[in-house]
Nucleic acid binder design. Structure first.
Length: 701
DNA sequence: GAGCACTGC
């Protein structure tokens, strides 16, 4: 095997790390940074006084990289080299190199905010900018000023360009460049504007198939719908090609809601003299690597979920990718030999319209959980609203988080964390569910609440996709699931798990009901973990086994729904008079409908319940509440009272001048790279523009 | 009567 590129830089890396507390390392795919950096530092004594930890954005990566490193060092996994992911800690007192997911490291800083067991912290793949990673970078930056510099080093690895920004964040720390080992990829732009990217991709794919030599084609689409459309069209066209004139072809869809057994098909060796077409979402951008790809077709779009803190509403939008993403996609063509990337957009669009990097998650999601977590750390002298983030979230977003936390008793009217809030922060759940568990523990419905919390954590991986046509293909229609007694979706989830529990967690039962086995066993694991945590924390925690089930059911799950009402006090809606639309009860009222997939049932007059709590608001074809549960009017009066007295200025501790704060920050950064700096408002308008362009194209068709 | 991209504790 060739020597990995990073090993040629060993001396330089060691010297830089010795002389600097923080080092940024820019390493492209194939540089070997994930496996070699830890070993290099180990060889030079950086693990003598502590462990070297390396974060990974995904569980599979943490496990596979740790396994590889253990093998290279000739040690047993779990001894000198180990890993820690949720539900699985394979480390020991001997462990000197430890791979973990960023979520696990974040949890660890809850029990030791200075992370003293680590002599080196390596934040790998920082350019992916997950929410956890952004919080970790803020925390680690603080540690740099606190911990003894004789025994502490930080390394952050990133993709091109973004590395400079990270260096700036860490007070201009040195940046090392390590080349990757990719083969050259020729990029070909498209100048003609096509009516739809599905059609454009179809044309290009067939073109490649007819003209170009062998090699698989990877096509980036945005979601299940356009993937299925394209797969169908490709099958038709390939079949219509004259037999014998071109090589055989096989077409695979690849997206997250595909059952795992269909996902892994792309890893099987392809039939000989046969070209594979893989039509994928951005799951193939980072998570899954398909070997044999020589041609990439890039639509230039991605489906992205974003949160509007003003309305509390999520939306799932098709937006333009960033230049970093475009390059990542192109790189997928050069893993095994020189390749080609066909971009279904012009070079002008790439240069002028695309943002440099995607909007980081921290600016696209509700921050209630993260704000609570940071408050629970009790960092001296650190005000959450002024916390030093690489890309600060908007003031609206922080205000929204505080408002939500106040309504569910996690912080008091002055913004200080409460004892309830501390307990909540210990649980690996979103705040509403943590709060539900605590309320349930007090009213005797904990066992059921634990089940619901676990089911909601795995919800998307429970049911196979409801795509049109897929039902026909299935051999037999699954048995009908329980209906939640008409009380709502949370109750349905509870009933599903209880039925499965009664069968002794029978795998066949899952099949009969059309439930994904992996999803259901994940629920079982999560429930077990939550049980243990609740037993450990709440000294008086009882009833995790659920002995009161039958009595509760007769009571229409009253206690359980009451607990949900306390937990979801920030997500409450009232039905309109005389029709079944709802308005949310919060700072800014929204008109919404119950999602059509809900099992909530109307009464004999055809009316839905007067009050419900919901899991989330999401705008697709129109604004919907997903996962609703009936609640009683008398339960909500304390919530309404709280809403009336809510004072955001008090909650945020008087930090009311966001504009100044943001401007200052932007100016600080813009000294170095003024072209690439964008305010959140700029980003918003760019996203909006991309969305409009896309919609315009869609309409034309 | 509509439909969820991808991760993670």
């Amino acid at each position: 095997m060739d020597k990995l590129p990073i090993l040629q830089f060993e001396d330089k890396i060691v010297e830089t790390v010795k002389n600097n507390l923080v080092t940024v390392l820019i390493g492209e795919t194939g540089s070997g940074k994930s496996t070699q950096l830890s070993q290099i530092l180990f060889r030079h004594g950086f693990a003598d006084s502590g462990t070297i930890c390396v974060t990974q954005p995904r569980r599979v990566a943490a496990v596979s990289v740790a396994r590889r490193v253990a093998q290279e060092m000739g040690v047993r996994l779990g001894e000198e080299v180990g890993y820690a992911i949720r539900f699985e800690d394979r480390t020991s007192t001997k462990t000197r190199i430890k791979y973990l997911t960023d979520g696990v490291l974040l949890r660890e800083s809850l029990s030791d905010s200075e992370l003293r067991s680590y002599s080196v912290i390596i934040l790998d793949e920082a350019h992916e900018r997950s929410l956890n990673m952004d919080i970790l970078m803020g925390l680690v930056k603080r540690l740099v000023g606190i911990r003894d510099s004789a025994n502490f080093r930080v390394l952050i690895t990133s993709a091109t360009l973004e590395g400079e920004k990270v260096s700036e964040f860490f007070n201009g720390c040195p940046v090392l460049n390590v080349p990757g080992k990719l083969f050259p990829v020729e990029v070909i732009y498209t100048d003609e504007v096509s009516k739809s990217f599905v059609e454009a991709a179809l044309k290009k794919a067939i073109d490649i198939h007819v003209r170009e030599p062998e090699g698989d084609i990877l096509i980036f689409m945005t979601g299940q719908e356009d993937i299925e459309k394209l797969v169908q069209k490709l099958e038709d066209r390939v079949r219509s090609l004259e037999e014998g004139s071109v090589m055989d072809a096989v077409i695979y869809p690849l997206h997250g809601s595909l059952p795992p057994e269909l996902q892994v098909r792309v890893f099987n060796p392809p039939p000989s003299n046969c070209r594979r077409f893989i039509v994928a979402t951005n799951i193939a951008e980072t998570s899954l690597t398909v070997d044999g790809v020589v041609y990439v077709i890039d639509s230039g779009y991605v489906k992205q979920r974003q949160y509007n803190p003003q309305t509390g509403m999520y939306s799932l939008d098709i937006v333009q990718i960033s230049r970093v993403q475009a390059n990542q996609r192109a790189g997928r063509a050069g893993r095994t030999r020189p390749g080609k990337c066909y971009r279904l957009y012009s070079s002008v669009v790439y240069k002028d319209d695309f943002m440099e990097a995607a909007v980081p998650e921290i600016q696209r999601t509700s921050l209630a959980g993260s704000v609570l977590y940071l408050k629970s750390l009790d960092l001296p002298g650190i005000d959450i609203l002024k916390f030093d983030f690489l890309d600060p979230p908007s003031y609206a977003s922080l205000g929204d988080a505080l408002r939500q936390l106040y309504l569910i008793d996690a912080i008091d009217e002055n913004g200080a964390i409460t004892s309830v809030g501390r307990t909540m922060a210990e649980l690996p759940l979103e705040p509403s569910l943590s709060r539900t568990l605590i309320a349930a523990n007090e009213n005797g419905s904990l066992s059921q609440a634990l089940t619901i919390a676990a089911m909601l954590s795995a919800e998307t991986s429970l049911l196979p996709s409801f795509a049109k046509g897929s039902e026909k293909k299935r051999k037999h229609t699954p048995l009908k699931l329980p209906d939640g007694g008409g009380l709502g979706d949370h109750i349905q989830l509870l009933q599903i798990f209880e039925l499965w529990n009664k069968t002794g967690y029978d795998i066949e039962w899952c099949k009969e009901y059309g439930l994904q086995i992996r999803g259901m066993s994940f629920v079982k694991d999560v429930r077990g973990q939550l049980c243990q945590l609740m037993l450990k924390m709440a000294k008086c925690a009882t009833e995790v086994q659920g002995k009161h089930k039958s009595r509760e059911r007769k009571m229409n799950y009253r206690n359980l729904r009451r607990a949900l009402c306390v937990g979801y006090a920030n997500q409450l809606a009232e039905r309109m008079i005389r029709h079944n639309g709802y308005r949310t009860l919060g700072l800014k009222s929204q008109l919404v409908q119950v999602h059509p997939s809900s099992v909530l049932q109307p009464d004999e007059d055809g009316m839905l319940p007067n009050y419900v709590v919901y899991q989330e608001l999401i705008t697709t074809s129109s604004p919907f509440m997903r996962n609703v549960c009936t609640v009683e009017m008398q339960w909500i009066s304390p919530i309404l009272k709280k809403l009336e007295t809510l004072d955001i200025n008090k909650l945020s501790g008087g930090f009311t001048d966001p504009e100044d704060g943001i401007k200052e920050k932007d100016q600080g950064v813009s000294k170095k790279e003024d072209k690439d700096v964008e305010s959140p408002a700029d980003r918003d308008s760019k996203i909006q523009a991309a969305r409009e362009r896309f919609l315009a194209r869609k309409v034309k068709k």
